[in-house]
Design a protein around this nucleic acid. Sequence first.
DNA 1: AACTGCTATCTAAACGATTAGATGCGATGA
DNA 2: TCATCGCATCTAATCGTTTAGATAGCAGTT
Lengths: 345, 345
Amino acid sequence: MTKRADKPITLTDVARRAGTSTAVVSYVINNGPRPVAAATRERVLAAAAELGYRPNRIARALRSRTTGVVGLVLADASNPYFAALARHVEQALERRERLTLIGNAGYSADRQRDLVDRFLAAQVDGLVIVSAEGGDDVTDLAQAAGVPAVYVHHGPSDGRARVVAADNHDAVREAVAHLRGHGHRHVAFLGGPHDEGPVAGRRTAWEAAVAGDPWAALLRCDYSRAAADSLTRRLAAGDALPRALVTATDEQAIGVLSGAWASGVAVPGRLAVISLDGTPESAHTAPALTVTRQPLEAMAEQAVELLSGRDPGVPAARAPLVVRRSCGCDGDQHRPPTPTDRPPP
Amino acid sequence: MTKRADKPITLTDVARRAGTSTAVVSYVINNGPRPVAAATRERVLAAAAELGYRPNRIARALRSRTTGVVGLVLADASNPYFAALARHVEQALERRERLTLIGNAGYSADRQRDLVDRFLAAQVDGLVIVSAEGGDDVTDLAQAAGVPAVYVHHGPSDGRARVVAADNHDAVREAVAHLRGHGHRHVAFLGGPHDEGPVAGRRTAWEAAVAGDPWAALLRCDYSRAAADSLTRRLAAGDALPRALVTATDEQAIGVLSGAWASGVAVPGRLAVISLDGTPESAHTAPALTVTRQPLEAMAEQAVELLSGRDPGVPAARAPLVVRRSCGCDGDQHRPPTPTDRPPP
DNA sequence: AACTGCTATCTAAACGATTAGATGCGATGA
DNA sequence: TCATCGCATCTAATCGTTTAGATAGCAGTT
């Protein structure tokens, strides 16, 4: 309790107090590479406790060349899907007693590169890159620094980088089949503006699922609520809305919902919707979204595991169909919302 | 381009190559405390560039006792309000070329303390604590380590700690007045389960605004979508819903919306709603929420400014009323959603 | 010629931990 | 009794920067 802000306690202080050298103190603190006599260990522990000693991780990092810090680069922290992914990555790292440096690239390849640069200068032990289409390939930077890097959700496709992404083929097939089960002959798809990326995988999966149906419409817009909202209003105004729609992302689905509401289009009555993300937000839209829930936690866990060099080898978990209201089912309309969707504070 | 992963370039390498001592290299790199002759400076810069030298921030931190890293502790990263706040804090730090260590306390005072402990061990230059009611007071820890700490949104009320929070009095008054303008005599309030915290400030502001109206109902539930959703369903089932409601948070408002939808209650027709947060999500609910938007960016900026010791002295910015649909106005129903709400990727 | 003042640079001591190699010492075996 | 072995511990180098103090060279003064 006598520690002063202006004079932090160091290893040397503890050693002096315990009447040993700094080496033994170090051995005790981290069950060091060499054993210490029980009596001495006690003395050291006591001294450390009395002085309130806290190891200086910076000094440790300098010497041992490992910081216990991992850099997390986000394409867009505003997007709840990415934000949820980030949360799970942070938790997975926390479980392993590592700290998370976070940074937001805002869809800019330059800023992404810059961030990785700064993280590397801070000597991170690893990099997790939650990237979107158009994200720069920073594998070379990481490799030059000898730091392991893993992409999550989307990564360069040249095979040089490790990428963790869920396989959506089954999920999309299931979503389309479910809407067909509601009697919809033609199931449309709302994809992203470009053709690359994991969401393109979703699109091709949809194409496979509706193969042979020339009336199945492919729509495109940005992965944003605003874009999907105005697209929906435009289609509604031109009476060109499909009756059943699978959206690539929750953001788009939420935009569709608000656009439909504003246009007086009933969901699911006039337009049935299933989204392919399943972020927590999807449980409390009006109406609640039926989704195929991405295994975000498993993806985060796998990514962090890959950083440690261990290759879990497990294929990505499947995305289960979560039936709620927007597809035309009763969903949980009459049950209280499930508490697992968002635990109360 | 010849740098190898296994042999990082150090100051010494650059010095050797430039034919100088390490001191001058250091002086050049950071426009050091001493001047360097122009010619020498050129040689050093050239050598550094050729070798691809990147200063080791860990070593620098050890020597100069400043890491350029700030710790950000979040009460709940799942909550979009906190998440948005976190994003703005990260951006404010980014602007000052500082890195952000992030951690999620999950409403646990123990974990919050633990996180602060670990951040301090990592020698952060400052702490930003986005806390909720019940968050532990960690000022003592930070103070003992001589690290500046700032609370955002909510902090200990004993006056020892610096706390940044928006003043909501005017905002609440404005919200109530707006609903009265729509002809509602009695404006109810949905607050949190407890009475402490900044949201209690919102509650007392409401009490002041509806003073003299004995029919103005005070409702309470957790700050979660699920809780507000089921509360709304229960009230609707018992025909006990108010006609006009101000909610303390967006999360609650969104829960009210989904509960109302599931109960067949029309918003804003049967129930008018205004929320007091104004996170980006609120623009794309069905119907779009009328809110008083918290000046999150200003709060983040102010918090980070406080960390640097400068006291901006500015009072918290007011929360402006953003009129959309849920209050009964036309809102932006017929305009496409404003692009500033969520920029497309 | 000796001295003063500058400037540009070098030398070397920190920062706080980790850890290989040296040392001291008691027990064991021949 | 003396070498040998193991254990517990100490000594000191090291990680890559920063920066105060020493130094060298040169121009200007007296």
